[in-house]
């Protein structure tokens, strides 16, 4: 986050995009048990990333406990509108298949945990690492200031 601004004298020249960018992924979801797709990725929030599972918040009625889901992760923001659930074999995103092991209703939304049954650990671990690196950036900033 240090900048070489020796010759600069305008505040606007010191704004660095990297500091303000949020890290996010858009998820497309197919409920393999009910045979329905959920493509409104803006309604899905990732809450927690675990070693071989994931916690999401999403609208009610997308899935139930025990349902099998296929998820495809894309870097945010998604640049194109997706009208159809992509093919898992040819997608540029990260596909993961899993089972809903926790389903908690929270007012208008539900919080679910999906335990992975088919996924590529290397891809998943690198995604985890991206979020951990973002946290490290934040922690390093805080440690410069806090005693």
């Amino acid at each position: 986050m240090k900048r070489d601004a020796a010759k600069q004298n305008l505040l606007s020249e010191l704004l660095n995009q990297e500091d303000y960018k949020e890290l996010g992924h858009s998820i497309l979801l197919r409920n393999d048990t009910s045979g329905t797709s959920f493509l409104d990725y803006k309604s899905i929030t990732i809450r927690e990333l675990k070693e071989d599972s994931l916690c999401l918040e999403l609208p009610k009625n997308v899935c139930q406990n025990g349902h099998s889901l296929t998820l495809i992760f894309f870097s945010s923001p998604l640049k194109t509108l997706i009208g159809k659930f992509p093919s898992v074999d040819s997608t540029s995103g990260i596909p993961i298949i899993g089972k809903v092991i926790e389903h908690l209703i929270n007012e208008e939304k539900v919080n679910i945990e999906i335990k992975f049954t088919q996924y590529k650990p290397t891809l998943w671990n690198s995604l985890l690492e991206t979020y951990e690196a973002q946290q490290r950036k934040i922690s390093s900033l805080i440690s410069k200031v806090k005693k």
């Binding site: 809450r47 927690e48 990333l49 070693e51 951990e132």
Partner: peptide, 8 residues
Amino acid sequence: AEPFTAKS
């Protein structure tokens, strides 16, 4: 920052 990992 969310989403966090257990490690973070």
